[in-house]
Simulated assay, not measured.
Amino acid sequence: MNITRDTHVSFHYALEGTDGEVLDGSRDAEPLTYIHGHRQIVPGLEQALEGRAAGDTFRQEVPPELGYGERDESKVLELDREAFAGMPGLKIGLFCQIEDEQGEMRLGKVVALDTREVRVDTNHPFAGQTLVFDVEVVAVRAATEQELAGSDR
């Protein structure tokens, strides 16, 4: 069976920067699964998986606009240090959940701090990067009605 919309796909991957450094992956764990055509993985990778079948292996370079997006400096927030008063161990590199102006929770990384302010970057860690996916398709089957009901149609 080939990968098309509404198929359940399992695949292993290694995510590399353009310098070949492995940034993430599933090779030492369970394969990643998703329902094809429902925007559950980055668009550039989903496009590259279209039409593939179990056993296929390939490498795909994905530019930022088809991956995790371009970096957006407006997503680097300057917050009052008081807002972090109940957070012990506040330091550069710490990931934290913050609430934005619309009341939605966002994951951010502390990139700078002083006695008055904390700078938090809420860009995806891979935003602005061209990425290379080394992929092995493990299994492809029709998604069940229950799986489709739980996906973003």
Rank of each mutant, 00 (worst) to 15 (best):
T122C: 15
V22G: 04
V140A: 05
F133T: 04
E16Y: 07
L94I: 13
T122H: 08
K91P: 08
T7F: 08
Q129K: 13
K109V: 03
V118R: 07
R116T: 11
R27E: 04
A139T: 01
V110N: 12
I41M: 04
E101T: 11
A112L: 06
R27D: 03
A29K: 15
K75R: 13
M105R: 13
G93H: 09
G89F: 12
H12P: 01
Q97K: 15
S74M: 09
E73A: 00
E73M: 05
A54H: 03
A14M: 00
V132F: 01
Y34D: 02
L49M: 15
T130R: 15
D121P: 03
P31Y: 02
A29V: 08
K91D: 15
Q40I: 02
G44N: 01
E99K: 15
E50P: 01
L66T: 05
R27W: 02
R5E: 14
E65V: 00
E61Y: 10
G150E: 15
L107G: 10
E82H: 14
G128K: 11
V137G: 03
Q129R: 13
H124L: 01
A54G: 12
E73H: 09
R81W: 06
D56M: 05
P43G: 02
G69V: 03
F95C: 10
K91L: 12
I41H: 05
G51V: 06
G67Q: 03
G55Q: 10
L23A: 09
D114W: 05
F133P: 02
G69N: 01
H8L: 08
T7Q: 09
T144Q: 07
R116P: 03
V76D: 04
L107M: 11
Q97L: 14
R153H: 06
A14L: 00
I35W: 11
I35S: 08
L94P: 14
T130W: 05
D134H: 09
E145D: 15
P125Y: 05
R39A: 12
V110E: 10
G89M: 09
G89H: 12
S74K: 12
Q60R: 12
D24F: 09
G25H: 01
K91H: 14
E46G: 06
D6P: 06
L45R: 06
F95V: 14
E99N: 14
C96K: 13
R116Y: 06
G103Q: 07
F58I: 01
M1S: 09
N123C: 00
